[in-house]
Design a protein around this nucleic acid. Structure first.
Lengths: 383, 383
DNA sequence: CTGTTAGCGCCTTCAC
DNA sequence: GTGAAGGCGCTAACAG
């Protein structure tokens, strides 16, 4: 039976069957009883797809009228449009947006680059973007940089070749060449999730350093004094580095010494790495009574490791995270964190982009704006 | 005017060559270090971007030779290429892929649709895809359906207008119109994460029902008999529905009755919903000694709720999940789950797509393949 | 309301 | 190794 194949299957091995009908998968796969497996054999022909000219010929109108019938506000008589749409439906015509974009000089999409797509913060931002853009029929082309500015540069270069009408970036750090490319691209750029000192163009973000500062203050108010910080080892994640800098600044401002910092693994630092880091922290500085983690994920790892070792949270050590991920709300004890409206960052960035595009098209001068997004320390059980 | 400012730039690269078209220096921009915040004011002009014809004119060659110099295997003398690349660098020429695609009939990208980008399973698949495709210079255009087949249909329609060279889908359920669109698109389609009964074309996946079955067997082997299932309430998530069906089938096959099913919330069901579901489960059927959750996220929520209520896991109730998310490895107790090589699904799908594209281009007949991906039950502390 | 003309920027094809 | 002509599929800008 198929289930046994699966259960006993070798890890990482895959088996390819040429004909599923005689394969090992058993009867469960072909329950529709269709003996012919003709999928794929017909429609992959290299025949040319119907074009607007085909629709024009078949409907008896010119291509231009077909084009108008497909647009929203165009002036076409109802009967004409009806007939044209009928032909389109009949022959399965699908408009070619790239050809249209070539002549109208509007590609109809914008690009967003995030460090990773597997992070609810950034995917929420992507959702906000999608929502803002789709109201105007713009599509979102998403790319992920893996926290590497080199990959970001490559992506920027690759994306620009498709002529996006705008670009959303995460953070304010880019390679020299990336900045040059962006500057000569002549499209609006929005940097997000940060407040860069030297922005490329527009900005929708917040100060990660200030957020960290606020968290230090929160812990101090709750009576903690020996506060440590857990983060990634390199500075690939500039927002993480900003959070660390904010922590150090706050500690020094409050006269709490230089602080205790454990850096562990390349960003994004994982749950497991958080667990390893807290062990190292407590071994090195047993006096530590609270830790701020660069993200909720590492904070969660810290808490689980504390469970394992029998250290009570927040009794032995208080734990704070960053980002308000679901896991920190649901975890026991729930995790004190910094919450940012990730969706709103995307929504606002999308709206700012749209209005900028409009103004440029109208020939107006556009003064680059900076939209500040609020953050808030959310106090939970872990502190 | 903006153009004049642009010419003042001293830190840019080239200022000698004027763009014959506009009489201004092409695209160089004042570097930072200016007290004024002049971002965005210069480079957003509506000036036309340099084209291949500009490069041709400035380098003294024809556009065709420029085009060749940009390709890999083309026959251009070294000195010619060098000069051309020099001009390109100088004036900041960026090739227009959409124009190229229009004439070469190769868009240079493929599309992948996933239910959500905020899920490490699907984002790992996207990474595998990216890796497989980038070897051949193909880009990935990612879209997310939010588990809605209506949105999937819209996305398919929108994507097809950009003429992707292939398409990766998640799951085997699509609307009628979506299937029609796909079938007449004349490009290779790969459905993933499932083994559809009536595939559109190619498949790279596994049986979710069989995976669930395997989990029931695992629990029975460990002595559990009153096994419940926690999942989403609707059938929007067909893979979730398959897992539930596999659970029911296994229970009945093993003579363990009809099983106990709590459905809670619309998929993807959250951690918090998992927590609420287990409370309901235990209240309704106190005899339950093990639960299978539709995903690791809900399983985690179950475990946290059990902590809160003082129910030991697996003492009072054993808990199993699906998907091998990081949280289930790191959580305490760690969660028994079904692991699937998500990255491999993407990698294999990408490679299958590439070879299919090659074969079609070579005029070969392509028999649709089904690649089965193995899964495995990973036993951990929670059972 | 509808049609004609002329490209958009590049690549294919064929010349040399 | 290089160039010239033509066209990919569509739309802007004018006609009528």
């Amino acid at each position: 039976m198929a289930q046994q194949d699966g259960r006993l299957g070798q890890e990482g091995m895959a088996t390819e069957e040429k004909d599923p009908k005689t394969g090992t998968a058993g009867g469960t796969m072909r329950a529709d009883g269709n003996p012919d497996d003709s999928r794929g054999s017909l429609f992959r022909s290299n025949l040319p797809r119907p074009t607007m000219a085909d629709v024009a010929r078949l409907s008896g109108f010119s291509a231009m009228t077909v084009s108008r019938a497909l647009k929203d506000g165009a002036s076409v008589s109802a009967t004409t449009r009806e007939r044209i749409l009928g032909v389109i439906e009949e022959i399965g015509y699908v408009p070619d947006l790239t050809a249209g974009g070539l002549s109208s000089k509007r590609s109809g999409f914008i690009t967003a680059l995030v460090p990773t797509i597997n992070n609810s913060n950034f995917s929420d931002t992507a959702c906000g973007l999608t929502d803002a853009l789709s109201e105007r029929g713009l599509q979102l082309l998403l790319g992920y940089t893996d926290y590497s500015s080199g990959r970001e540069e490559e992506l920027i270069s690759a994306m620009l070749r498709r002529r996006p009408e705008g670009m959303i970036l995460t953070g304010g750090f880019h390679t020299e060449r990336a900045r040059r490319l962006l500057e000569s691209a002549a499209i609006p750029i929005i940097e997000t999730w940060d407040l860069p000192e030297a922005p490329v163009d527009q900005v929708v973000g917040f100060s990660n350093a200030d957020a960290s500062r606020a968290m230090v203050h929160h812990l101090v108010e709750r009576g903690y004094r020996n506060i440590g910080f857990i983060g990634g080892s390199s500075n690939r994640d500039t927002r993480g580095a900003d959070r660390r800098a904010g922590y150090e600044a706050a500690m020094s401002e409050l006269g709490l010494g230089e602080g205790h910092i454990i850096t562990f693994g390349t960003p994004p630092i994982s749950m497991e790495q958080g667990g390893q880091a807290i062990a190292q922290m407590i071994e090195q500085w047993p006096e530590v009574d609270a830790v701020i983690c660069v993200s909720d994920l590492s904070a969660f790892g810290v808490i689980m490791e504390c469970h394992r070792r029998g250290w009570s949270v927040p009794g032995r050590v208080a734990v704070a995270g960053f980002g308000d991920f679901e896991v920190s709300r649901c975890c026991w004890p729930s995790i004190t964190t910094v919450t940012v409206n990730s969706y709103d960052i995307g929504k606002q960035a999308g709206e700012l982009l749209l209005s900028t595009i409009d103004r440029i098209r109208a020939g107006e001068e556009v003064a680059p704006a900076t939209v500040k997004i609020d953050f808030k320390v959310v106090s939970r059980e872990s502190t």
